[in-house]
Design a protein around this nucleic acid. Structure first.
Lengths: 336, 336
DNA sequence: GATTTTAATGTAAGCGCTTACACTTTAATT
DNA sequence: AATTAAAGTGTAAGCGCTTACATTAAAATC
């Protein structure tokens, strides 16, 4: 049977209020009493019940992070940033994984309504304006990470600019026929990236060719998988005439794309997006996203809002950086 | 201001008990009433407060997963298994990340005591016998994933056997001088893997050479990083005489190792451990762990125990499978 | 139509805590 | 030693729910 504050109070010969004070680092408890209570609590294996605490105090000291894909380094880096930012505060972190199977919006809105935490971080979750408005009505402090909206605080990334830079780089290297290894076209980041790609083309007076936007067949995780990258690259390799470079919408996909190139023994310069740890190790040229910073800043922003709910909504946009490695180079000799 | 059950009851002209019943799918509520309450709740943005619910009902319908590293595919796969298993049950999942910075045991034991959930999954957390005994005292239903103990239910993996198989395979290919690209030697999985390696050597009458166990300098995440793999491989490449094959203790490390080999333009056959998604894409021979199954089974086991607390402790050990790809082959010609 | 049965709803206690306020003890001041 | 201030502790209300039990309304039975 789980012990309650009453058991401890009784065993220690004090009132429950005193026990409560001991566990809430209130100063006005005599040192003797504190030690006695702590000792007995330890012996009896007691710890305050979070639900009861939360209910009585109306505080939870808790931030809840909602995220769909917890697989990749993007997520890990964001999480690192969040944790580091939280370490300086009195907040704890819980995570709820938004599963791929059910409706993401419903999962999120139900979770938000349950009063788990005082603040919420929505990571890589992209909702329509209408959906966000619905969330807004709950009047819950939350900050979007890797998404942008006028309705909420957000820390996002300029996908359009990143794609523009990558494409521009390829053009500057003399490539003209540049394919896009894309993912689910309805996803917001993809839309922005393709926008940047198009802008780069048009500024360089290269006409846009719809056939060069290629997607894999497997649409799991909106197509942000190695498999999907592989499939798309196979299609690209079969285009004729072949493109002379590829802008790939994610490092994960690029891993698949590389495999396809090796299998077909054709190398096409490729530049991708994210700068996951692996990118460095497989020599992938890519667009860096400051994931750690984004997590860190978003958490700060959220905590600011908790302290001061009337703050104006603020949107922070982080900027891309090109990281050039070997994959974007043109090879003379083809390696296996 | 957040709405309570009283607000809804008042607005709907019913008692709070009725509102509660509506939200707990009790059947004995008239259809009219149910609809009315639901409509008003929706309008007013009401949802039951989890803390109050948990406190009053003494149920949480919640499983809490504790995990240290959420970065890799190992974790994702386990999570997938957990979620799929949970989908058939009425339980929800929360995750608490056990940070690298602070004492893991303390974080875990504090979290366990807070009555968050009815059951807990401890993933890839390795504690000493003594520590586990301390946890045992709390008398909380929990299941270890990727760890073994007589004190708790567990779903683990036979690391020793996996290492044995990998090493044996290399030996069968004629390699005799086999280095180990190791990680933190105090970590339990590493100990078991090295044990398997040694057993394979001795069964084949190859003498063990301590100098062939090589570790990177960076010990973040117990050395399970690309960087650490890279560092260790550089050391291996400088050994003389050079080993003729490498048993690598994780795919992540192998990614770093491959980079080192490319930079030094020396190829040594390598076989690693985990079979992360990436392994397939970079042609890594490796030891497969059935991560998804492990997550799935562990969750089942935990739920079983929740239904029947007096069950005998059960330990399930999953077995390795060798996945041979190109990395373990000996190359005649060296590629860039 | 009166009586029994069943369905629907309400009342109130209690889940394990926090915390305002009251009270008692101890220390400081005169 | 009497008075005042400060420190330590206790009492009790209440956080937002669930649920056993009581009550009332509706349906079924005779």
């Amino acid at each position: 049977m789980a012990k309650t504050i009453y058991d401890i109070a009784k065993a220690a010969g004090v009132s429950i209020a005193t026990v409560s004070r001991v566990f809430n680092q209130a100063e006005n408890v005599k040192e003797d009493t504190r030690e006695k209570v702590l000792k007995i609590a330890e012996e009896m294996g007691y710890h305050p019940h979070v639900y009861a605490q939360g209910l009585a105090s109306k505080k939870k000291n808790r931030i809840l992070m909602l995220a769909p894909v917890m697989s990749n380094y993007f997520f890990t880096e964001v999480l690192r940033g969040i944790q580091d930012s939280l370490a300086e505060e009195q907040f704890e972190l819980n995570i709820v994984n938004i599963g791929q199977k059910k409706n993401a919006f419903k999962q999120v809105s139900e979770t938000l309504k349950k009063h788990w935490a005082e603040g919420y971080l929505l990571v890589s979750l992209h909702f329509s304006e209408k959906e966000l408005e619905a969330l807004k009505r709950y009047n819950i402090p939350l900050c979007l990470v890797d998404d942008f909206s006028n309705l909420f605080d957000s820390v996002s990334f300029n996908n359009e600019e990143g794609a523009y830079m990558a494409t521009n780089y390829l053009i500057s290297k003399g490539f003209k026929r540049i394919a896009v290894l894309s993912a689910d076209a309805s996803s917001i980041p993809i839309r922005d990236r393709i926008k940047g790609y198009k802008r780069a083309l048009s500024e360089n007076e290269i006409s846009f060719d719809e056939n060069l936007i290629v997607t894999g067949d497997n649409m799991e995780r909106d197509g942000f998988t190695e498999l999907s990258g592989y499939q798309a690259m196979v299609k690209i390799l079969k285009l004729s005439p072949k493109p002379d470079a590829v802008f790939c919408t994610s490092d994960t996909k690029a891993v698949g794309a590389k495999k396809a190139m090796e299998e077909y023994n054709i190398h096409i310069p490729i530049i991708s997006f994210d700068n996951l740890t692996i990118a460095e190790y497989i020599g992938l040229s890519t667009v860096n996203q400051p994931m750690y910073d984004m997590g860190f800043r978003a958490t700060n922003k959220l905590i600011q809002r908790l302290h001061n709910p009337d703050l104006r909504i603020s949107n922070e946009v982080h900027h891309p950086e090109l990281v050039i490695r070997s994959s974007s180079e043109k090879l003379n000799e083809v390696t296996s």
